[in-house]
Every structure is written in C-alpha cells, then in structure tokens.
C-alpha cells in the first residue's frame, strides 16, 4: 500500500468541514457544490476548495453533467486508509500485549 496515499487521505480528513462534506455525500449520494454550500456557514468557493482537496486525496470524484459537477464518494480511498489502520493497529496490539506481559509477568489476565 502506498503510504503517501494513505497520508493524503488522513490529511484530507483532518478538517471537520471536509469530514462533514464526505459524511453528507456518503449519506445522500452525489451532489453539486451549490447544493452542498447551502448547509455550511462558508462560501460556495470555500466548499469547492474543500471538495477539490478531497478529490485530490482520492476520496471523491467530480462528474460533469451539462453545466454541473456532481461529487461522488469513492470508497477505495477510505478502504486503503482503513486497511493501513487495521494492519498497523494489529501489530501494535501484539507489541503492547507482549510489553505488558514482559513488565508484569504475574498478570494472568493476559
């Protein structure tokens, strides 16, 4: 798995507005920037900027229909990030269990 790509996903998701936009698109299906902008206390321009950041990270695609661009969630970007978290997390779970055992061998719970 490509670490830069996972990093880009995490970075893109680091902003609460972008998480909200993704949440909304994943719940309601594709929408245009104008449709989305109504629900946020920021300009349409700012919403477009956030949508572009999400698209750059591979989390959204913009599909042109006539004069409109509708943004749709791409599940694979999130899947890569989830796979990275699972893989690296499993390793730390094993290490921390072993560390606990190493420092407290009397603890029978582990």
């Amino acid at each position: 798995m490509s670490a830069p790509r996972v990093e880009a996903v995490f970075a893109a998701l680091g902003d609460p507005t972008r998480r909200q936009l993704l949440d909304e698109l994943s719940r309601d299906g594709p929408k245009t920037a104008t449709e989305l902008a109504g629900g946020y206390p920021i300009s349409r321009q700012a919403v477009v900027k956030h949508l572009n950041a999400l698209a750059t990270a591979g989390l959204l695609v913009g599909e042109r229909r006539g004069r409109d661009v509708r943004y749709r969630v791409v599940a694979t970007g999130l899947g890569d990030a989830a796979a990275w978290l699972t893989e690296v997390g499993d390793r730390w779970d094993r290490r921390l269990t072993a560390l606990q055992r190493h420092l407290d061998p009397a603890d029978e719970q582990i």
């Binding site: 880009a8 995490f10 902003d15 993704l22 949440d23 994943s26 950041a53 999130l78 997390g89």
Partner: peptide, 29 residues
Amino acid sequence: PQASLRTTGSWTGWDTRLLRCWAAHMSVA
C-alpha cells in the same frame, strides 16, 4: 509533503467511527 492538505486540527478519535461508516465491510481494530 502535501502542504495544501495539512491542517492543524486534531482528528484523533474520528477515525473508527468514520471508517466504520464508509467502509463497513472492513473491521477497524
């Protein structure tokens, strides 16, 4: 580094909920 995407906001804690929501087929530890 993807400077344009960097943010100073903390997002610890969102990950499990969010990824469960969108990648329901994967189990996040």
